[in-house]
Design a protein around this nucleic acid. Sequence first.
DNA 1: GCCAACGTTGGC
DNA 2: GCCAACGTTGGC
Length: 152
Amino acid sequence: MPYWLMKSEPDEVSIDDLAGMPEKTIAWFGVRNYQARNYMRDSMKLGDEVFFYHSSCPEPGIAGIAKVVSDAYPDESQFDKKSKYFEPAATRENPRWFNVDVQFVKKTRLVSLQELRDDPKLESLIILKRGNRLSITPVTPAEWKLILKKMG
DNA sequence: GCCAACGTTGGC
DNA sequence: GCCAACGTTGGC
């Protein structure tokens, strides 16, 4: 699965924030959903490409492209008592949560959620399915190509 | 701010 | 192992 979509709240980390990071790279910490974790830990590979999606904001949609630049490793925030992501059950020997590092590739025009919904060819896109809340989802090569094209 | 949909927790 | 209660996500 070489293509992914990752959601981020722009109030937390926007595509512009990512572009402004050292090395234009961030650790994708704070994922606390097992399925999303498993995608990072078990399926993501170095160089996989990612649609960077802005969620919970005035204009939800895909705002840019990033890529996976590390294998998964234990999420540091699970060990931090002061973090909202602290996980009491996790130990260094037996961590529960993992993350990869993600690097900025480019900002694109915003391909809005509505625009994605309006294209019948994108019916299969997981984030468009009813009730979907998963913050990390695979994207098929066909979906990837189609959305790239929309970006122009 | 509302609320539908979903995931997790914990008592039994 | 069931399932009610609760918490979270995320569009609107």
